[in-house]
Design a protein around this nucleic acid. Structure first.
Lengths: 194, 194
DNA sequence: CTCAATGGAAACTGATCTGTTTCTAGCACC
DNA sequence: GGTGCTAGAAACAGATCAGTTTCCATTGAG
């Protein structure tokens, strides 16, 4: 299992999980032990711990996004595809062990916006905003750029609430996003009207 | 200056600032040095570093809230009083050196929701929600409880955005809050209608 | 002046931090 | 059987971690 992947993959996996679970201040020793890789190998594969932080965050990006965002084969309306993100976030929180959006958490912990990990975090947060933007443009929203940012903010706000309260969200994220979409005219099909 | 206050006050001040600026992993040595207090005195005044985290967070709570929330003497409408919070947040971000809501940041860094610091964070976040709730109730909002939570989420979402982007918010928080208030019927006075 | 309390400076414990180095076991290739 | 590469184990460096303890200068009360 753990030894089938290359040392690099094992390190990225272990780092992604432990940096998220315990914070970026977890020691390199504990990390290497969890990955079954020696410190020597680690420092041959990565220049520094800071680089490992950034690379592990980047390596988990695609998987995390697939988890949240509906695929291209999901041909529901843009509105429904957007709300899916919030519903999946809600489900992740409900499962427990949710410690916030990994990108926001890492950026908060690193403090320094120029840290390579912060740069990666910024990039992937923008990816989410871009997804919202595409869907909103397709739905014909009036100001998709602003609305996409607002939806990202609601996502991160729900995430912060989950961390602080340590309780399920109860659909409040999706409800807020829906309210904002309604206000912007990206409406649910009103079945009663036709 | 620094030595006029009691050792306890100096410690709480230094801790509040350094825990926020550098994270809760900053060492007790650096903290005591900044406060001009010996470690011996620190451990006589506080049982542990964890307790100091919680107490310093609590001690800065009232001041932080006064900074954000309009006072009782501000007799504008509930809607305007609510939006003031977002405008002041925006101003804090624009000043630079904004590293996110101290309560959310601390909770994120601590990971453990039962840590005394996390308990304090939860309490003060609830205080903000309660303020929104009172204002909304006075404005006659239909579902003030839900709306107050949503506004708090927007606040924390804007905060997360400021951290990740390390750039001014440009009023996006207040705009989102206003949109949500509009949708809920807590409207701005429409001068054109009378 | 004497006495007791306060609190800072700094040594100390033992653990942990990042990063380097040495040694050696395994393994493919010739 | 050799030879050279990979990579884990582990010791090491020098700094820092939380927390305790010793020592001493200051200070206010009697």
């Amino acid at each position: 299992m753990s030894t089938s992947a290359t040392p690099r993959e094992r390190l990225l996996d272990a780092a992604g999980e432990l940096f998220y679970r315990d914070g970026v201040n977890i020691g390199v020793d504990a990390l290497c032990k969890a990955a079954g890789v020696s410190k020597k190998s680690m420092y041959q594969l990565f220049r520094s711990k800071d680089e490992l932080i950034a690379e592990s965050l980047a390596s988990r990006g695609p998987g995390y996004q697939t988890l949240l965002r509906p695929g291209a084969e999901d041909d529901r309306s843009p509105r429904e595809r957007i709300l899916t993100v919030f519903e999946r976030q809600d489900a992740m929180v409900a499962e427990g062990n949710y410690l916030g959006c990994p990108y926001v958490s890492t950026a908060v912990e690193l403090k320094n916006p120029e840290h390579p990990g912060s740069v990666v975090a910024r990039y992937f947060k923008q990816q989410l905003t871009d997804f919202f933007h595409r869907e909103l443009a397709q739905a014909g929203a009036e100001d998709p750029a602003t609305l996409a940012i607002q939806l990202t903010m609601i996502f991160d706000g729900a995430s912060a609430r989950a961390v602080v309260r340590a309780q399920p969200l109860g659909g409040i994220g999706a409800a807020t996003a829906a309210a904002l979409l309604d206000a912007a005219g990206v409406r649910a099909p009103e079945l009663a009207l036709h």
